[in-house]
């Protein structure tokens, strides 16, 4: 079977039928894995996951393959991009089943991947933690991930995660010590 990395993305964007067949054959397990994960998290069934996976492909080819046109092989791998887009399509599929809304393929790419409207701010001065440190703490404490999983997600080794956590804790303790002393004084 062809790997996604071997797909000719230019031919895919041009709508070449043979390339599309190879793309589907190479990507079906990934797309299905994404939709299974999304549906499982939202109480969906195996059939729902299959419907959502089918919908991912429909959206990929809709409007003259508009979603596919947004892919840039110089920036990311096709598999990772497809996982992100497939996940967004699956979430959109769920939303549309609940209430009609604008189709994902009609939404600008820049606003597509991250659908979060809720913002969580940390109650600390800006710059106290680096972006990476804040993300590591979030993964370890909010998401209850273990160090190995967080490391895999961040594409670093486990020791780097531990080190990042340690440095973040030092900064936070220092900050709150100063704050506590100021409060007592």
């Amino acid at each position: 079977m062809t790997a996604l990395d071997d797909i000719d993305t230019l031919a895919l964007k041009a709508g070449d039928k043979r390339t599309w067949h190879r793309f589907v054959a190479a990507s079906a397990s990934l797309v299905h894995a994404v939709t299974r994960r999304v549906m499982a998290a939202h109480g969906g069934t195996a059939d729902d996951a299959l419907d959502a996976a089918q919908d991912v492909y429909v959206r990929l080819v809709a409007n003259e393959r508009r979603l596919v046109q947004g892919f840039d092989p110089a920036r990311a791998s096709l598999a990772t991009w497809l996982a992100v887009v497939g996940r967004s399509c699956a979430i959109d599929h769920l939303r549309r089943r609940r209430q009609p809304t604008s189709a994902l393929e009609d939404v600008p790419e820049a606003a597509m991947a991250v659908e979060g409207r809720h913002v969580e701010r940390l109650n600390i001065p800006t710059g106290l933690l680096t972006d990476r440190q804040a993300l590591v703490l979030k993964l370890l404490y909010d998401r209850d991930m273990d160090v190995a999983d967080a490391a895999r997600f961040l594409n670093v080794d486990a020791q780097t995660v531990r080190s990042t956590h340690h440095k973040a804790m030092l900064r936070l303790r220092e900050h709150f010590d100063v704050e506590d002393r100021a409060g007592r004084g």
Binding site: S29, A83, V114, E115, G116, L135, K138, R143
Partner: peptide
């Protein structure tokens, strides 16, 4: 770090990439 839904999307995509072994 500040958008939980975006983090969900990234985690789902990352995990799906490692789970995509079973044939569809």
């Amino acid at each position: 770090a500040s958008h939980p839904a975006a983090l969900d999307a990234a985690l789902d995509a990352s995990l799906a990439l490692s789970e995509a072994t079973a044939a569809a």
